[in-house]
């Protein structure tokens, strides 16, 4: 509820500011994005803790889980930045950010793929 209220307030203020101070409007939307995410951080970290101790119980190795967590984090930060750039009218910069994020995620996914292939090779003689 608070998030929706905050979002609406920011939308109205952004319209007022966009009239004659467009740069302020972008700052406002960035600040709102940051605040909404900060308020959600508590819940996200608790969910992550549940996942990690579940995976420990199922003795899945932390390497895979760590990589998945990293990929989720990178995806989120890149999306955050890309949306703000697009909001500011910089579509090109936004797509560059997303492109870089995809590359980074790809680089991080490679070891997992290699591990899967190795285990596959072991199974198939």
């Amino acid at each position: 509820m608070q998030v929706v209220g905050l979002g609406l307030v920011v939308a109205v203020l952004a319209i007022i500011l966009r009239g004659n101070r467009p740069e302020m409007a972008i700052m406002l939307s960035m600040a709102a994005g940051i605040i909404i995410f900060l308020s959600m951080m508590g819940k996200i970290s608790s969910v992550l803790e549940v996942i990690t101790d579940l995976s420990d119980r199922a003795n899945i190795s932390m390497v895979y889980l760590g990589t998945i967590l990293k990929i989720v984090g990178i995806a989120y930060v890149a999306d955050f930045g890309a949306q703000i750039c697009r909001d500011a009218g910089e579509g090109a910069v936004a797509s560059k950010i997303e492109f870089a994020a995809k590359i980074i995620v790809l680089v991080m996914a490679v070891p997992i793929v290699v591990a899967v292939l190795n285990s596959l090779l072991k199974v198939v003689p």
């Binding site: 905050l6 307030v9 920011v10 203020l13 007022i16 500011l17 009239g19 004659n20 101070r21 302020m24 409007a25 700052m27 406002l28 600040a31 709102a32 605040i35 900060l38 308020s39």
Partner: peptide, 16 residues
């Protein structure tokens, strides 16, 4: 955090 939003909006309107 809401204060920050209103601070930014206030500064924006003031500057305008």
């Amino acid at each position: 955090d809401v204060n920050l939003i209103f601070k930014i909006a206030g500064v924006g309107i003031l500057v305008a």
